[in-house]
């Protein structure tokens, strides 16, 4: 008995140490660019990237501050799109996954395949673009950031389906059925409450993919009022890369001074991540609460 407690303690300690190391490995590189964004431009190029630069500077942020109204608006778009997209996506996915998890559903294999198939094949951007922009007129509307591509991911649906069928005991569903509950009641009263952990997980995934998405914005949005924060960043970065690729050689004559410098680019990167870092603890709290509920009730 004693040995076992010891082994538990040892494992606990082991877990702590290993995770600590991993966490440091994850954070240090990010810290390096955060510091770079606060480093004086010339010092950065002269002495290289350092954790303790010779000269700090907030120049990069001052530069960005001048464009703060644009940033604030872009944050607004990102938050709205992420919230709306995540909620809609969760509704669609949890509904879709339910029948797929029921063994008495005759077509469960067919529809599992139906959803999985979408992961493998796509017709490319042109047909999708025609669909959303010409038939649904979504170009330059906020819907273009929410609806195309991300609303339902086969990956998430199958994840939820698996959770339903592996973690919700059939007996529970049967019992509810014998009590005369309809399928919708079973879904709402039994399934959903029991699957909070996976819903929280999927919400996090979906939220992240909405937050990090720039492709929809790239194709469907021309109006800068509807830029999300990622679109703002990616356009800046892309223009620099485009210039670097030499594709524009010969086209440019003058005006080069307006391009953001290395430390500004780092600052932009930092600004794009901060909201997620701030929001994450809240989501995580929910995640952990979710996992607790799952464990206790299950």
């Amino acid at each position: 008995m004693n040995r076992k407690i010891n082994s538990e303690k040892a494992f606990h300690r082991f877990a702590f140490v290993v995770l600590l190391i991993f966490a440091v490995i994850c954070i240090l590189p990010i810290l390096l660019i955060v510091i770079a964004s606060f480093t004086d431009e010339h010092v950065l190029l002269a002495e290289g990237y350092r954790f303790l630069p010779a000269q700090m500077s907030t120049m990069a942020y001052n530069y960005l501050w001048k464009q703060s109204d644009m940033m604030v608006r872009a944050y607004g778009v990102s938050i709205l799109v992420t919230a709306a997209g995540t909620i809609l996506s969760i509704i669609l996915s949890t509904l879709f996954a339910y029948p797929l998890s029921r063994k008495d559903f005759k077509y469960r294999n067919f529809f599992s395949f139906f959803v999985f198939f979408t992961m493998l094949f796509s017709g490319g951007i042109v047909p999708s673009y025609m669909m959303w922009s010409r038939f649904f007129h979504m170009k330059d509307t906020i819907w273009a950031l929410v609806v195309p591509t991300y609303l339902m991911s086969a990956f998430n649906v199958l994840l939820i389906r698996n959770f339903y069928s592996n973690n919700v005991p059939d007996a529970l569903v049967e019992a509810a059925r014998i009590d005369g509950a309809s399928e919708f009641t079973i879904f709402g009263r039994v399934m959903l409450p029991l699957s909070v952990p996976v819903i929280a997980t999927v919400a996090l995934f979906t939220g992240l993919s909405y937050w990090n998405d720039w492709i929809n914005g790239l194709y469907y949005i021309n109006d800068p009022a509807l830029y999300s924060i990622q679109n703002l960043l990616i356009r800046l970065m892309n223009n620099i890369q485009y210039l670097n690729s030499g594709a524009a050689a010969g086209a440019l004559s003058g005006g080069m001074t307006a391009l953001p410098s290395a430390s500004v680019r780092m600052a932009i990167a930092v600004i794009g991540v901060i909201p997620v870092v701030l929001a994450y603890p809240f989501l995580q709290k929910y995640l952990i609460r979710g996992t607790v509920i799952g464990a206790v009730k299950g």
Binding site: F96, Y98, P99, V115, T118, P127, L151, M152, E183, F184
Partner: peptide, 23 residues
């Protein structure tokens, strides 16, 4: 009843994935 659960998702998948797949 199960099909009703699938319906909204099916509509979306057909519009978003299957029709453009013809491309």
């Amino acid at each position: 009843t199960y099909m009703l659960f699938l319906l909204p998702g099916l509509v979306y998948l057909v519009i978003n994935n299957y029709i453009p797949m013809m491309g």
